[in-house]
Computed example of a mutant assay.
Amino acid sequence: MNKDTVIKHYEHTLEWAQSLTEVTEEEWRSALADGKWSIAEIIAHFVPWDEFILHDRLKEFWNDRALCKAPDVHEMNRQSAERARHEERSETIGRFIAVRTKLLQEMKKIEASRWTTPFLIGQTELTLSSYFQGLIKHDLHHMEQVKQALSTKRR
């Protein structure tokens, strides 16, 4: 996965998030399925992870030492989902678009050659390409969940 592919995906997610201003309030707030998050919670949970990548990962990738582990996934997701339940849709989408736009701007500044330079997270060797490939897979998983839920609800 090269830099251009990653950039295009992140640009597409901005358009996708913006399109969610068109869903009904019920669609925005309802769980996608039993035991699943709502669209609001899904969008909100991207924000702290993008912030983590922007502030704690990007500047550390090539400092010649292993990167620290990520924050507690469940706790960070729980907090972001809780916040989404209490804020306006425009605020949730606005926060997502703001941080993802900043992340995109920073990614564009990274030279193409850096995308294949190895680094360590704990004992795991990755490249920027493989790292973002995992993040994109995660985005696409949630985007597909939303698409499926909306198509089911609109039948």
Rank of each mutant, 00 (worst) to 15 (best):
A31Y: 00
L32T: 02
L32P: 04
A33R: 04
K36V: 00
W37D: 13
S38E: 01
S38Q: 01
I39G: 06
A40P: 07
A40L: 02
I43E: 07
H45F: 05
H45A: 04
F46C: 07
V47E: 04
P48W: 03
P48M: 02
W49L: 09
D50S: 10
D50R: 08
E51L: 12
F52Q: 08
F52V: 10
I53F: 05
I53H: 10
L54P: 03
H55N: 14
D56V: 01
L58G: 06
K59F: 10
K59C: 08
E60T: 00
E60W: 00
W62I: 13
D64K: 14
R65T: 15
C68K: 15
K69Y: 14
A70V: 11
P71M: 09
D72P: 10
V73S: 09
V73P: 03
E75V: 06
M76C: 12
M76F: 12
N77K: 08
N77A: 04
N77M: 08
S80R: 12
A81K: 04
E82R: 14
E82Y: 13
A84E: 06
R85P: 12
H86N: 14
H86Q: 13
R89H: 15
S90V: 15
T92L: 11
T92W: 11
I93C: 04
G94K: 07
A98G: 05
V99M: 00
K102H: 03
L104S: 01
Q105D: 10
E106P: 03
M107T: 01
K109S: 10
E111C: 02
A112P: 14
R114A: 13
R114C: 10
W115E: 06
T116F: 04
T116I: 05
P118S: 04
T124E: 10
E125K: 07
T127W: 04
T127N: 03
T127E: 02
T127D: 02
S129N: 07
S129R: 03
Y131V: 03
G134H: 08
G134M: 10
